[in-house]
Design a binder for these strands. Structure first.
Length: 274
DNA sequence: AAAAGGACCTGGTGGC
DNA sequence: TGCCACCAGGTCCTTT
């Protein structure tokens, strides 16, 4: 479900609703997620004030004086801001209820997401410690990608989807960024030129920025914290457009699988010749 | 160290 | 209508 723009949109929705608010209840509905929700989460969070909410890669971090709640939305996870007495929806696994009578509600049908707790530096938590650069980090550029790609024979699409290289680029935006950069998705990362990497880095930033401005891409599950759809699906140029004409050259777009993920590209614009 | 593939889940869709 | 195969915004873990 959520790539960086979707998580960022959710962050911008929940941050004003809950920052500096005190937690008055925590309801765990005994669902196993990717890992179990810590049983003592309520005990840890009760009466704590959320001092800051931030994002690292696709993880959201709710900080308190006692520790930090780490949230990942997996493929189908949603976070909604709802009145504390809202009607319970299916697959609602966790509610964090605040003094302002609103609740942060975690809903996740597939349960690939995670709710974790750490009392140390969350950025050093094992799942976060090895993340690569944020795409909007000033050091994220063509040169960085070129260095990272040295001797890597993995194809370029999987390379930019690797969170230890750059965080937050998932299947949709990888497809889109490669199309806009005119790069054939199957090229080995080490075969990409410096100039191509510079173009790619810029396009990754552009597309993520544009997607954030449009509140993300809604295909199925994804909704903002207010329950609204994103709008970026209207601006997708290749993802979900297999068999349709390329918007640049009218050639029919093709779909193949790379690492079990659908990959759509224009066989004419995205030439295999490097 | 890097790459490939399976595993974790539910729900929607399209074919027969 | 029912059953089945396959697909979906992710990523960890095991094996090669």
């Amino acid at each position: 479900m959520p790539e960086l723009p979707e998580v960022e949109t959710i962050l911008r929705g929940i941050s004003p609703a809950f920052t500096n608010q005190k937690i008055v209840d925590v309801i765990i509905r005994a669902q196993r997620l990717r890992w179990p929700i810590p049983k003592n989460l309520k005990q840890k969070l009760l009466d704590q004030v959320v001092t800051n909410i931030s994002r690292r890669g696709r993880y959201l971090l709710l900080e308190t004086r006692a520790g930090t709640v780490i949230i990942h939305l997996g493929m189908s996870g949603k976070l909604q801001v709802l009145p504390k007495d809202h009607l319970l929806t299916k697959h609602e696994h966790l509610n964090i209820v605040f003094e302002n009578s609103r609740a942060l509600c975690y809903i996740d049908p597939r349960r690939f997401g995670a709710i974790l707790w750490t009392e140390g530096n969350p950025l050093q938590y094992p799942l976060l410690a090895n993340l690569g650069l944020e795409p909007f980090d000033p050091n994220f550029n063509g040169e960085y990608l070129l260095t990272q790609a040295r001797n890597r024979k993995i194809c370029i699409k999987q390379f930019i989807m690797n969170n230890s290289v750059v965080t937050g680029v998932g299947n949709i935006y990888a497809n889109e960024a490669l199309f806009r950069s005119k790069i054939y998705p199957f090229v080995p990362a080490k075969a990409i030129s410096k100039k191509q990497f510079q173009t790619l880095a810029i396009n990754i930033q552009k597309i993520l920025k544009q997607a954030i401005e449009n509140s993300g891409t809604t295909l199925r599950d994804y909704a903002t914290s207010e329950g609204k759809s994103g709008a970026f699906q209207k601006l997708l140029q290749v993802y979900g457009r297999n068999g349709k004409p390329c918007q640049r050259c009218k050639t029919i777009l093709q779909q193949q699988r790379i690492g079990q993920r659908s990959t759509v590209f224009c066989p004419r614009c995205q030439t295999p010749i490097v």
